[in-house]
Amino acid sequence: MTNSEEPGGGAVPPSRGRIAERLLPGGEEPDPRFTLANERTFLAWIRTSLALLAGGIAIEAFTADLFLVPVRKGLAVVLLLLGMLLSAGSAVRWLRVERSMRHRAPLPLPLIVPLLAAAGALAAAVVLVFILWR
């Protein structure tokens, strides 16, 4: 007999912990492969976020002779803030997807995708303008 069975034969759902009960209330456990796939997607976003963080520091450190100080600092801060936002956004997205799967609801749209695309395009445009302008 496992912990999830009563002596009478009825199944008792195992305790999921306080944080899980609070952040992922109700519903039923989805297919474990979907849960693990959601975690892998979260980790992919985190890798992107780490790349942005490293890129932000790199711009500040290595482009002193290319950009004016305000532009350099601005670009670095934009990339770092984007990395932070992506870290938080990936956790929120993981949570929303997990909730949807528990309730067998349609998956939410990834709001961080247009945000990342817009910010990336803006940073690229600023770099392009300054390289052509020099």
Binding site: G17, I19, A20, L24, T35, N38, E39, S87, A91, L95
Partner: peptide, 12 residues
Amino acid sequence: VDADISAVLWTA
């Protein structure tokens, strides 16, 4: 599989 919430939150 229990979703590993604490690991996700700590990483973020």
